[in-house]
């Protein structure tokens, strides 16, 4: 099942300008990640498509982040990372 969102040419500076190594502070990185990803939450949470894998490939590519950074850094609630009310 293809991803309906095109993650290839998106502006990742919302993440890359705020989440920086070598420390990758969790508060900044996770908030930046949510600011980027929350608009696409429904498509990302659909594990029948490739959206999530594709998005992380580009995030890691544009930000040169270590694999698994956001998965190991970010925890909110038992269901996942809570998105701000729109």
């Amino acid at each position: 099942k293809p991803c309906p969102v095109n993650f290839e040419f998106m502006n990742y500076t919302i993440i890359t300008s705020r989440c920086k190594g070598p420390r990758y502070p969790a508060d900044l990185c996770c908030q930046a990640f949510k600011d980027f990803a929350c608009p696409y939450a429904e498509d990302l949470n659909d594990l029948e498509n490739e959206c999530s894998s594709t998005m992380f490939s580009y995030i890691n590519l544009y930000g040169s982040y270590p694999p698994g950074l956001f998965a190991s850094l970010c925890r909110d609630d038992k269901v996942g990372l809570i998105c701000p009310a729109s």
């Binding site: 990302l44 894998s53 609630d77 990372l81 998105c83």
Partner: peptide, 20 residues
């Protein structure tokens, strides 16, 4: 109400290298 979230299932894709 706001019940939007990024699931951990989705987040776990961050661990999978794209070549796999």
């Amino acid at each position: 109400t706001n019940n939007r979230y990024i699931s951990y299932g989705s987040l776990s894709k961050n661990n999978v290298p794209c070549s796999r």
